[in-house]
Design a protein around this nucleic acid. Sequence first.
DNA 1: CAACAAACCGTACGATCGTTCGTACATATT
DNA 2: AATATGTACGAACGATCGTACGGTTTGTTG
Lengths: 196, 196
Amino acid sequence: MTPDQRLVRGARSRKAITRHAVDVASVTGLNGLSLGKLADDLGLSKSGVAALFRTKEQLQLATVETAREAFLDAVVRPASDAPPGVTRLRVLIERWISYAEQPLFPGGCFWAANLPEFDSRPGPIRDALRRQHQAWLALLADEVRHATDAGEITDPDPDLAAFRIGAVLTAANIAMRLDEPDVANKVRRLLEDFLG
Amino acid sequence: MTPDQRLVRGARSRKAITRHAVDVASVTGLNGLSLGKLADDLGLSKSGVAALFRTKEQLQLATVETAREAFLDAVVRPASDAPPGVTRLRVLIERWISYAEQPLFPGGCFWAANLPEFDSRPGPIRDALRRQHQAWLALLADEVRHATDAGEITDPDPDLAAFRIGAVLTAANIAMRLDEPDVANKVRRLLEDFLG
DNA sequence: CAACAAACCGTACGATCGTTCGTACATATT
DNA sequence: AATATGTACGAACGATCGTACGGTTTGTTG
């Protein structure tokens, strides 16, 4: 069962395209993507790009998925080395701040950039973005739960705590994008206040 | 000095167009605006709309300004009846929740929808949106300052408090747009916890 | 009355968009 | 060896975009 090299090639091309599309979409939004632009940027033909994803919406969906993988690699996976509870929570937050401060994507947080554009437009793209957003909040909530179970902190509503953490982080992303000073420390103070 | 009726007419037309443009932009974003679409929606000609605003960017800027006025009418001005400090802060927050829950604009908060789209794109639109965003946070901070000066609450950093309130509110807007349940009460609990 | 200005329209322009079709080539399958 | 599949391309399509020009109508100013 040797792998089909045609499919391997295709998968590699798709990945290269969506990885670049993530960068573009973090600035211009998923709607700002254009097949011609992407093709030009990568030295491909427009029809070639269009053929790999049968429609633009599928390109956008694949882009969303690629963004998720990059986010997991940069933020979530590194934190899984830390012990559950408050310390892992701290690593997650610290990683997220780096993710926004030395931007993994040139436009900052991918979801902060694209959720507002699609949250009022029903369809598979909104569904995918919402699913990922909820997964991120659920991850935070789980860690808060761990922390309360271990007695590290006391919090009556882990879901609410996760909502609050997520709110501060995405607000921090906007503030950084608007070139406001000292945002990272602002966030650290707010969240340390919460964890202490 | 009777007013020039031609200019009056023009101003009224511009207002009608930008008021509709605000609604559209709250869903599709300011980039999703199109002269042809706006003209069709309002029964005008594309070239007529284009002539009233000399360029699309100026239409977008006028749209941003119209959104600001509508926001002031719906959220800020009603709260100015309440006495400064905690109670006015409460009215502001309650008004903002209504503003997002029974949306003044069909796509929810105008700035939550458009700031992420322009925060990485230098230019007059980003500048205008940022100015308004900062004015909103400054308003919240001023009210927090009033409250601490009056001894109603104790808070070492009103700017940080405003950042926190704004963060929770915009996160609430997203959550509502994603059809999550009971968001308003979530927010009320978080902010009451802060004000109490 | 003459000159001007603004609102508004119809038309047309170049550009860009997503999509489709036919084709060439490499790889798998039978 | 014959057939099918997937990548990639060039060319062309209809649609839509922002903008520009000329002309008509209505109101203002000299």
